[in-house]
């Protein structure tokens, strides 16, 4: 075998692997990525029931209801719209009313969101990224400044 032919075989082999990988990536990106939506998006767009999405916003104050066993129901709001979420399981430590949260799951009939994953904010300074961005878009959160909902008069914030 000549040097060129050997090289040719190897380059062809590498290209086959690469092509396979590109195919896998494209297929996976089409099928397994999950879009993030806010309650307003759900109201505005027709998102089919059963499609896997992430829903994020603030846990509406006073909405958390514990049902049988470990069933929990709460509402996610982005201050304009509100969506009821059902979840079965243990809520994360930092899950609190009025705080940011991201859930993953699918819509059920009756516009109820059935979540199988609930991610609360990670630490005291962190708000789930998508939630923060979505709230910012609504003008409720100024950059670097205080968190959602505070376009409030801010003599209050003297915190260092």
């Amino acid at each position: 075998m000549t040097r060129r032919r050997r090289r040719g075989i190897m380059i062809a082999g590498a290209l086959v692997v690469l092509a396979a990988a590109v195919g896998l990536v494209l297929a996976a990106l089409r099928e397994s990525i999950v879009f993030f939506h806010t309650p307003s998006d759900l109201a505005a767009k027709a998102i089919p029931e059963g499609q896997r999405i992430r829903l994020g916003g603030l846990v509406a104050v006073g909405s958390v209801k514990r049902g049988e066993g470990v069933d929990v129901q709460f509402a996610i709001t982005d201050t304009a719209e509100q969506v009821t979420v059902r979840y079965r399981g243990v809520l994360p430590d930092l899950f609190r009313e009025g705080q940011g949260v991201v859930t993953e799951g699918a819509l059920e009939s009756g516009r109820v969101f059935r979540a199988d994953t609930v991610l609360a904010k990670h630490d005291e300074n962190y708000m789930p990224r998508e939630v923060a961005d979505a709230l910012k878009e609504k003008g409720l959160w100024q950059h670097g400044g205080p968190p959602p909902g505070t376009g409030t008069p801010q003599p209050a914030v003297e915190k260092k």
């Binding site: 990988a21 099928e31 990525i33 879009f35 961005d133």
Partner: peptide, 14 residues
């Protein structure tokens, strides 16, 4: 501006 998350299913598939 679309917000997506790429999670375990993607990596399992690729």
């Amino acid at each position: 501006g679309a917000k997506i998350s790429v999670g375990a299913p993607y990596f399992n598939a690729t």
